[in-house]
Amino acid sequence: MERRVPGSEQMNWLRAALLAALISSCAVISSAEDRAIPLNQLRSGSEFLSPELRALQADAFANPGMLWVERGAKLWSTPAGSAGQSCASCHQDAAKTMRGVAASYPRVDAKSGFLLNVEARINQCRSERQAVAPFRYESDDLLSLTAYVNSFSKDYKINVVIDGNAETYFEAGRTLYYRRSGQMNLSCAQCHEENWGKNLYAERISQGHPNAYPAYRMEWQSMGSLERRLRACLSGVRAEMLPYGAQEYRNLALFLAWRAQGLPMESPGIRR
């Protein structure tokens, strides 16, 4: 028969309480740092490219994305609207003022509380400061200015804020990432976390990082935004493609940026 020691009940209770506290504190840590792909195993999409395409991305002249960057540079200092304001009127030299900026996007606009990507930020400036119509999604103008702004973040490490007023957007993005959808009934994670590095037909599945966008995709023979790329995945799993500018894309983009935390930006990148 077990011998009861006086006070052992209390000891057990204390131990249980301590254990519970320990577990819950672990849970808090793991929910913030719960990364399916640890940071030291992140691999940019460029590592899944052929050597030729990698060389094309690295060639600052032949990289076709530079055509859009060059056009963006012209747009930066072209006045628009009745006030005759250009981007440069407020932001001066983009090489100084835009340095590293895009690496922290998508981010929450403090004033409106909305989650903005670089495209949305540019269009916000157009409607609020320049008083002109926003650029159409995927228009050459919007892609060019975005590519121009992003080019000053090349080699900067992705670093986004996910707490505070960004938390609800982030959690919505995470939910979307792990939710199965489409006739294929696949979630993003099933390809890009559980099966990256394996073959899907003739392609190798990448980890699905957003660091090259807006990127020149060989399949498109053109520059395209991250939203366009996400639509391609939705179409691939035969899910309904959400319209451009949908909140879901931005939420997902924030989650993707957090997944890729610390990866260097490559825009204008080259992708298959």
């Binding site: 002249f61 032949a62 076709p64 530079m66 055509l67 859009w68 023979q221 053109s222």
Partner: peptide
Amino acid sequence: IRVLIQHPM
């Protein structure tokens, strides 16, 4: 000499 032209072709 290198040339790159933006064109949809």
